[in-house]
Design a protein around this nucleic acid. Structure first.
Length: 418
RNA sequence: GUGAGUGUAGCCCAGCGGUUAAGGCGCCAGGUUGUGGCCCUGGAGAUCGAGGGUUCAAAUCCCUCCACUCACCCCA
């Protein structure tokens, strides 16, 4: 039997209310903060991703779904949302619009990773990018927006961590300090951290191994090595967050796994203990546009995992609105009444009232049972009597009351009752 | 990529070497000649995750593979 490919899943009708709810709230919050929707292709030139995420990032090293098309081009299924939006910003000359340009998306993301609860090979992200402005006020707004998004969904048990990882001016100096510090403890590092020391020393800080954690706690802090501008940027960010009453925690070990981040990085974490500790996160990327071939342009973005958000909605027992279902089911007694029943169903639909007629030659009892399990408000019964008199029997499934209504009055009757 | 656990009808699950694999939910039908939800009765639905092996005999023991879950890694 065929089954969905590993790490992918079907979203059945019962789950859809959650998805609709989250997507709706995302659209609402974006409207509130002036973000406009953008959709980019599901695959891009492989180099767009390998250039931006960083040669030694896990995404590029082992998680990309890369394939060659018939023309011999190397393409990759979107492993993250930011680079395609930056590409679109450059390609369409969005730098000519009022800055910052604020865009959002809801997109599938593909990463070849070992599946786990809350972790999939195809998952969905709600992401925002604000491009063309370096002011920390914008960082604060983006973070506040994420905060309000989770709040508006009804989530209460999550927290926010922020950090600054500096810029081109100050990071190299810090990395030298960090590397020198760790070089002294080389022997005590775990296997992964030994490679991190060579390839990507910043990542040493968020290793979870107990021994490495001790070293990380005592390691030189990025925040102590920030240049004047970065320091000011970070203190402004904190000031703004306080003005906006967003509670946060500074975590000097928060670094994030993508090389293009500069200055601000942030992460939202659910309070609940679990293996998946990130609900969403993001950061500033002031060199990315330039690296991808555009003119120097600062930007900041965020990405929120929709599956993880839904997981937490369930954990917190948030009730989501049910989606409107079918309003009317046409039932008929006797074969000759089918034509009339089809006609009336069509009439109702043209008036914007959802209606279908039962299929097959079932008896009335079975048809009503179907009406019951579909949860329709009305079952409309048509038998020979009704056809003869040009009427219809309208049964209100909620209270079992029935009324005989002339076909000519049916639409207004149902609209009035609703 | 590494380690551990699990895998029985659409769903939840009993059985853990021996005649036709049990139960609940759901589904379908009957109990009403034109009437749902409750109740009663009946029915359909399972090559016991897949393949191979051990045995007179395997859902039950062994091996391989696949999937899911958990931990690591990493992230959303």
């Amino acid at each position: 039997m065929y089954q969905a490919a590993r790490g992918t899943s079907d979203i059945l009708p019962e789950e859809q209310p959650y998805w609709h709810y989250v997507e709706q709230k995302a659209a609402d919050i974006c409207r509130l903060y002036g973000y406009q929707r953008i959709d980019t292709p599901i695959f891009e030139d492989t180099s767009l991703f390998s250039r931006s995420a960083g040669e030694y990032s896990d995404i590029v090293q082992k998680e990309m779904y890369t394939f060659e098309d018939r023309g011999g081009n190397s393409l990759t299924l979107k492993p993250e949302g930011t680079p395609p939006v930056c590409r679109a910003y450059i390609q369409h000359g969005l730098s000519n619009r009022p800055q910052p340009v604020k865009l959002y998306y809801i997109t599938p993301i593909f990463r070849y990773d070992r599946p786990q609860a809350g972790r999939y090979r195809q998952h969905y992200q709600f992401g925002c990018e604000a491009i063309g402005e370096a002011d920390a006020a914008l960082d604060a707004e983006v973070i506040e927006m994420s905060w309000q998004f989770f709040k508006s969904l009804g989530l209460t048990r999550f927290s926010l961590q922020i950090n600054s990882i500096g810029c081109k001016q100050c990071r190299p100096g810090y990395l030298v300090e960090l590397t020198e510090y760790y070089a002294g403890y080389r022997a005590e590092l775990c296997k992964d951290c030994k490679t991190r020391l060579e390839k990507n020393p910043l990542r040493l800080l968020d290793c979870k191994q107990a021994g490495c954690q001790r070293l990380a706690d005592a390691a030189p802090r990025n925040l102590d090595y920030l240049c004047f501008e970065c320091k000011e940027h970070f203190s402004n960010l904190q000031k703004y967050l306080e003005i906006l009453s967003i509670p946060f925690e500074v975590n000097h070990r928060l670094v994030r796994g993508l090389d293009y981040y500069t200055r601000t990085v942030f992460e939202f974490q659910p309070e609940e203990e679990g293996s998946q500790s990130t609900l969403g996160g993001g950061g500033r990327y002031d060199y990315l546009i330039e690296e991808l071939g555009g003119k120097p342009t600062p930007g900041i973005g965020l990405a929120i995992g929709i599956e993880r958000t839904i997981l937490n909605l369930k954990k917190e027992n948030v009730r989501v609105p049910i989606l409107p279902g079918l309003k009317v089911l046409m039932t008929n007694v006797g074969e000759e009444t089918r034509d009339e029943s089809m006609k009336i169903a069509a009439m109702l639909r043209r008036e914007g009232i959802s209606a279908t007629s039962t299929a097959g030659g079932k008896n009335l009892k079975a048809q009503l049972r179907q009406a019951n399990s579909l949860g329709v408000r009305y079952a409309i019964i048509i038998g020979e009597n009704e056809v003869k008199t040009g009427t219809v029997t309208v049964r209100d499934m909620a209270d079992s009351s029935q009324k005989t209504v002339p076909v000519s009055d049916l639409v207004s009757f149902i609209k009035k009752e609703a």
